[in-house]
Amino acid sequence: MTRHLSMSINGEPHEFDAADHRTLIEVLRDDLALTGTKDACRQGVCGSCTVLVDGVAVRSCLMLAARCQGKSVTTVEGLAAGDRLSALQQAFVEAGAVQCGYCTSGMLIAATALLESNPSPTEVEVRAALVGNLCRCTGYAPIVRAVLAASRAGAGHPVAAVGS
């Protein structure tokens, strides 16, 4: 079955038709060309597909698009205000937290969710918040440094953390 869905994506209202069996990641990447959201396992383990739905970090690979009807979705493309990076994104750039960058979108979303609920996390809290986001390049240290730096920079409420 195909149904008509409406949801806010990165602060903009979207209306589209999607078959019931489509997952959120497929709709984002294949239908809406929002390819910033990555996938590396499609089993909920790697975290590269993490997005916010109504401000809550979820795995878009395991979320049916139909379940997001009427909700607000934030992807990595929604974190910057235009070309102005959020404090967290800026911190990732400056801390060397990006190597191949394939994990970066998911990391940023998971860290955004953390800083929303806990604006000044400890290092252990940062590490615990990112435990479901695998990175094979960096060894995590620069990513953790970036999140801590952003939290100190007052990035508890980054510009576009929950869409509009």
Binding site: G44, V56, A57, R59, L62, M63, A110, A128, G132
Partner: peptide, 9 residues
């Protein structure tokens, strides 16, 4: 259980 996003879902 799992990780934060898994606990959210």
């Amino acid at each position: 259980v799992g990780s934060p996003a898994i606990r959210n879902m």
